[in-house]
Computed example of a mutant assay.
Amino acid sequence: MKEVAATAGVSVGTVSNVLNAPEKVTPATVARVHTAIEKLGFVRNDAARQLRAGRSRCVGLVVLDIGNPFFSDIARAAEQRAADNNLVVLLGSTDDDADRERAYLETFDEQRVFGLMISPSGEDLDRLQALRSRGVPIVLVDRDGTGSPFSSVAVDDIAGGRMAVEHLCSTGRRRIAFVGGPLSLRQVADRLAGARAAVEDHPGATLTLIDTAAPTVLAGREAGQQLAAGAADLPEAVFCANDLLAIGLLQALTSRGVRVPDEVALIGYDDIDFAESATVPLSSIRQPTTLIGSSAMDLLIAEADGRAAPEHICFQPTLVPRASTESEGRRPSGPVE
Rank of each mutant, 00 (worst) to 15 (best):
V179L: 05
R307A: 08
N85P: 00
L183G: 01
A8V: 08
P149V: 15
P310K: 09
D126C: 00
N45G: 07
D109V: 03
I74M: 08
V113W: 07
G257W: 11
G67V: 04
F71L: 04
A213F: 08
R331L: 14
D190C: 09
L185H: 10
E311D: 06
S294I: 12
V188E: 04
R55L: 06
R57L: 03
G13E: 04
G293I: 12
E326S: 12
K24H: 07
L61Y: 04
Y104K: 06
V188W: 00
E23S: 01
A195S: 15
R330N: 05
L128Q: 11
T29C: 04
S133I: 00
V165E: 07
R132C: 01
I118W: 08
T146V: 13
A36D: 06
D211C: 00
L227I: 10
D271P: 09
D46S: 12
F114G: 05
R32K: 15
V199I: 15
L192G: 05
A103T: 13
L168Y: 12
P321M: 03
T26N: 13
D211M: 01
R322S: 04
L61D: 01
A296F: 13
A296R: 09
A278W: 13
V33A: 03
L218I: 10
A278I: 07
V141T: 14
E337T: 11
R221S: 03
R174I: 08
A323M: 11
V280P: 03
D109E: 14
R57C: 02
P261A: 15
A198S: 07
D99I: 14
V30Q: 03
G306E: 08
G248E: 06
Q316M: 13
R100E: 09
V43S: 13
I138N: 00
K39Y: 08
P288R: 07
A229F: 09
